[in-house]
């Protein structure tokens, strides 16, 4: 068993009991601090460095071919703890004839940024890697409605993800080789 040693505190000397020398030391410290460098970031002009894995606002991304990746599976809607996401499933727009009637696409996709807690579950759960939390963190609006990000806004914020999956190309190739899925 470890031996406990009770340390005897030294009684304070007279000068220590007046606190004055200690106060002078403290004053010296604070005074020298006045001339050290400042750590302030002049915010709107200077911005902090955002690390790669930062969880900013959730956005929807497109693949390099410009296709919507989201298939409206609504997993993110279910997993979202504060129920910030609301999806109205719909069909793939007619222009994309290669995948029309194959998969769904969101007709409307809303993320209420007044509810979102930036947990990143939606990104984690998405089977299509369609929703990403990006490095944008400052968002503001004049009304509650403005704080609900609609589909267009989400795609605008998200942009294109340069991933190399090319899911639809692969699918097409497979189909061409007579191997349907």
């Amino acid at each position: 068993m470890a031996k406990t040693v009770v340390l005897q505190r030294k009684p304070l000397s007279l000068s220590e009991r007046t606190y004055l020398p200690q106060i002078v030391t403290g004053l010296k410290t604070t005074f020298s601090n006045m001339f050290k460098g400042k750590v302030t970031l002049q915010y709107p002009e200077e911005k902090p460095n955002i690390p790669k894995n930062y969880r900013g606002i959730p956005t929807l991304v497109k693949d390099p071919n410009g296709r919507e990746k989201c298939v409206s599976c609504q997993l993110c809607e279910f997993v979202c703890p504060p129920k910030a996401i609301r999806i109205t499933p719909g069909a793939v727009p007619e222009s994309e004839d290669d995948r029309e009637h194959v998969e769904k696409a969101p007709q409307e996709f809303e993320i209420n940024m007044l509810r979102c807690i930036y947990c990143g579950y939606c990104q984690e759960v998405c089977p299509e890697e369609a929703i990403y939390l990006q490095d944008e963190y400052s968002l503001s609006g004049y009304s509650r409605d403005e704080m609900i990000n609609k589909k267009e806004k989400l795609y605008e914020l998200g942009g294109t993800l340069p991933d190399q999956h090319y899911k639809w190309d692969k699918k097409k190739n497979a189909e061409d080789e007579g191997n349907d899925h």
């Binding site: 601090n33 050290k36 460098g37 400042k38 302030t40």
Partner: peptide, 8 residues
């Protein structure tokens, strides 16, 4: 106070 705490 700002200077002493490294602020501006």
């Amino acid at each position: 106070s700002a200077w002493m705490q490294g602020r501006v």
